[in-house]
Design a protein around this nucleic acid. Structure first.
Lengths: 343, 343
DNA sequence: CTGTTAGCGCCTTCAA
DNA sequence: TTGAAGGCGCTAACAG
């Protein structure tokens, strides 16, 4: 925009009031030791003249932009949009601004987003890793300069980066255990990228539960995919083609679980009588599908709030070194009809 | 963060290469007319020294931050997170950054968010209005300075602000018409804030369809609420208590429709035999509920992409005056079992 | 093709 | 309590 009107600056205010710009600058932000009268005049003039602080100038000078950056795999999942909403609330209330970008599950994009965040001099970064990210060198620049990086949900252990997540291992253990208690003997697991903690841990929790019940783990009963709805339908197809079908399925997210259930139901499989189901996430859809889906509840909104609070706590306390201090949030098994073998 | 290492600047590069900072600045961004060799050396040095452009300084100088601001009612709805994902994609690909904030359906918050966006000197603004916003004076500052403001979905007519939305009137007309064709004679409408175009238009489309079929509109058959799940359940309760129940319900969003259906089903109401249902939005839940919900499909992702493209088109063409040029995107009636009266 | 110069608007010593 | 002065890092004339 070329002919944008020029903005009112502190100099304009200073001139009008016959004082110095320095005084205006101080008056505008409760600098200790400013005459109350002058301050009042300054504020009055500022609002009358339509003054708006220029944050570029201020950021350049102070080296702080009051910006928090967020990089997530996708914005449009139920879980992630809850997280973002929680982050936004805290960030907004604390007077920061929010830069958001999505990696679309590609490490390459994550790297370029991180670079953009860096150039924009975010004060701190909240990250949930892409599907295929296999190293986090792209965050080293931040860490080296004490710009806090906090991982959430899809995290990466790092000396200097706190992580915020749930106990996926335990949750998966519990839900698999529950299936076993319902009488399931051949339990399939549909999981996600074994690069990501969340899916590794869910898989391991599942395996451990089998083990504890002396049920051998079978390769045939493991499907690793991207946990999309399409993949859920494909998995259902695979199940239908099996010689010996499973009598229980634990899927690492609800989206995939539900699309799998829908296709099986259409083919006459009875849930839970023939095959019991369990998911993960407590998506809204999980209590719309019939039978309602047994799942793990963990609130994205809360995770977003917590992550943002931890980050802003660091920033506002001016801690130079971020102490690694990870948080494990609560999650909960929710038993619904999809896993209640009735017999 | 106090002891953040000082950053490498173009001066450092200039010094090392024994050239001027201006040349470095030019070399760094393909300025037409820069020796290829020098440029190569500059880029090499920059990457070797770990140079990162300081966007505060650059923005201060050029008065452009390459930032696009977004203000929406809530981030965590299926529709809105699709929109945001679409916006992010386009914005990111065009080299802009995205500032996001939510009004939480409160005009007051919308106003303060707008102010923050202004201070941060966004280059343009994408807005979907809060539930109770009753004027848009808070955007006048932008408009006055030729900072483009574009409304989408929940829009406001304004000489200088393009709007992007769907034909809610027609969609509502069609879906109501469909219910009538299925044999419904007493059709209830559950709608939202009559301050927002989307809900006004849906209501009017509904009324018009009744009219065209000589069905009188009855006050008793209108419920206006916030279209939340809770309100859906409450509406169901009201329906159950009615002397003469409706034989069809058109709800202005799927979320509310589904929660209403669930409660009615639990009370033994048969859908669609006793009461046919239609919603709006084509939420993922709409094809999970049984019977699947008849609804209106319009893609949030596409709306986000379009809105962002229109905005960036304006910015990159350096149009000083944004020509009002609104867009009506396609929407589509999707008939499912919730409205198929069988008899 | 490159260097010189002069700010963008703000904040922050330092001195008064 | 206030003012003067300098500079954050970059870019855009202008001149060479």
């Amino acid at each position: 925009m070329s002919d944008r009107q020029k903005e009112v600056t502190i100099y304009d205010i200073a001139q009008k009031l016959n004082i110095s710009a320095a005084t205006v600058s101080r008056g505008l932000k409760d600098h200790p030791g400013t005459n109350k009268e002058t301050k009042k005049k300054i504020l009055a003039a500022a609002s009358e003249m339509g003054y708006h602080s220029n944050s570029f100038a201020s950021s350049l000078r102070t080296k702080r932009g009051n910006i928090i950056g967020v990089i997530v795999p996708r914005l449009n999942s139920n879980f992630m949009s809850d997280v973002i909403a929680g982050i936004e609330k805290v960030v907004n209330e604390s007077g920061y601004n929010l830069f958001i970008s999505q990696s679309l599950e590609e490490m390459e994009k994550e790297v370029s987003n991180a670079k953009a965040m860096y150039n924009n001099r975010v004060d701190g970064l909240l990250v949930s890793l892409a599907y295929n990210t296999n190293n986090i060198n792209h965050f080293e620049a931040f860490i080296k300069r004490n710009i806090p990086v906090i991982f959430f949900d899809r995290v990466h252990e790092h000396q200097q980066c706190p992580s915020i997540f749930i106990d996926n291992y335990k949750a998966a253990y519990n839900i698999t255990n529950h299936l076993i208690e319902q009488g399931c003997k051949r339990i399939m697991h549909i999981g996600g990228s074994q690069l990501r903690n969340v899916y590794i841990d869910r898989f391991n929790g599942y395996k451990r539960a089998l083990e504890d019940h002396k049920i051998p783990f079978e390769d045939e009963l493991l499907i690793i995919n991207d946990l999309s709805a399409q993949s859920g339908a494909r998995a259902a197809q695979q199940i239908l083609e099996m010689k010996t079908q499973p009598d229980g399925v634990f899927v690492a997210n609800d989206l995939c679980a539900i699309s799998c259930m829908q296709l099986l139901k259409k083919q006459g499989i009875r849930i839970p009588e023939d095959i019991a189901f369990a998911g993960f996430n407590n998506d809204p859809t999980s209590c719309v599908i019939e039978p309602n889906l047994t799942t793990i509840d963990y609130r994205g909104y809360e995770m977003g709030e917590v992550a943002a609070k931890v980050l802003i706590g660091h920033l506002d306390n001016n801690n130079d070194l971020i102490q690694t201090h990870s948080l494990i949030l609560r999650s909960e098994l929710i038993v619904r009809d999809s896993s209640r073998k009735k017999e």
